[in-house]
């Protein structure tokens, strides 16, 4: 379980958000939504301590991730898989090596086992045929799927997706959404999806956290969101031109 308590973050004099508090239960998928620049990705990066808050805390199964020694923190980070907005594939190595990367460093698997596991991971995301392609040869959607295979290869407890469908066509976006749901359901992964794509939210999320004007403006289930009378939230939802 992830507990976010009274989190505050600013960069210099610019307050990003203050007093952000909500919980993410095991196995559920929470979408963090809000306008561009409202600090959704910043909040996500606080959850696995890529960034540190000015005050407040993030508890992972009761342990404050920001108070850990670096060695312990790195062990805690093994429990997270992250799909970055730009995929963040290592461009000096090919698709196979990107997916095999965590296995080579964090497991003692033989080359044969690594190859088998990479093939399996790429099969799930439907990219076995691109296994030996250079990352520069991959399209945006393919890069996201390879990054997803890499992020899940160590079978994390938590998956975080930063704008998983941004810049993709509707069909590829649907494929990515399907993959997120498959990951959540088949592997029982707790998921955090940072997005402003309401189609994605309705498809994959159980709960929604809405960031607006430097605070957590609304938090609840997708069903509650559909019937909400919260002005800012509904304005944001309507602006996404998706009828709910």
């Amino acid at each position: 379980m992830i507990e976010i308590k009274k989190l505050k973050k600013s960069f210099g004099n610019l307050l990003v958000w203050d007093d952000v508090t909500f919980n993410i239960e095991d196995g559920e998928t929470v979408a963090i939504i809000g306008r561009s620049g409202c600090g959704k990705s910043v909040l996500m990066k606080h959850i696995n301590a890529l960034l540190y808050p000015d005050s407040g805390e993030v508890l992972i199964d009761g342990e404050n991730i920001h108070k850990q020694e670096y060695v312990k923190l790195r062990k805690m980070r093994h429990r997270f898989g992250v799909l970055f907005q730009g995929s963040a594939l290592f461009d000096s190595i090919n698709t196979f090596e990107n997916v095999a990367f965590p296995l080579r460093y964090f497991t003692k698997q033989t080359e044969k086992d690594i190859k088998y596991n990479v093939e399996q991971a790429l099969e799930i995301v439907g990219l076995v045929e691109a296994m030996y392609k250079e990352t520069s040869e991959l399209s945006g959607g393919m890069r996201k799927r390879v990054a997803l295979a890499r992020a899940t290869i160590l079978q994390p407890d938590y998956m975080m997706y930063d704008e998983p469908t941004s810049g993709l066509d509707p069909e590829t976006s649907d494929e990515i959404n399907q993959l997120i749901m498959e990951m959540s359901n088949s592997l029982n992964i707790t998921s955090i999806v940072v997005t402003h794509d309401m189609h994605s939210v309705l498809e994959v999320a159980d709960k929604v956290a809405f960031l607006d004007h430097g605070k957590l403006s609304w938090h609840g289930s997708v069903t509650e969101m559909k019937t909400s009378t919260h002005d800012e939230l509904m304005r944001f939802v309507r602006a996404s031109e998706y009828q709910i």
């Binding site: 990066k45 696995n48 890529l50 670096y70 790195r74 062990k75 980070r77 093994h78 997270f80 992250v82 970055f84 907005q85 730009g86 963040a88 594939l89 290592f90 461009d91 990367f101 965590p102 460093y105 964090f106 160590l154």
Partner: peptide, 18 residues
């Protein structure tokens, strides 16, 4: 620099690398 701005450094850290 390229690794940093394309979040490859963050990707390393988030995997548990130093």
């Amino acid at each position: 620099g390229t690794m940093k701005v394309s979040e490859q450094v963050d990707a390393l850290e988030s995997m548990g690398f130093n």
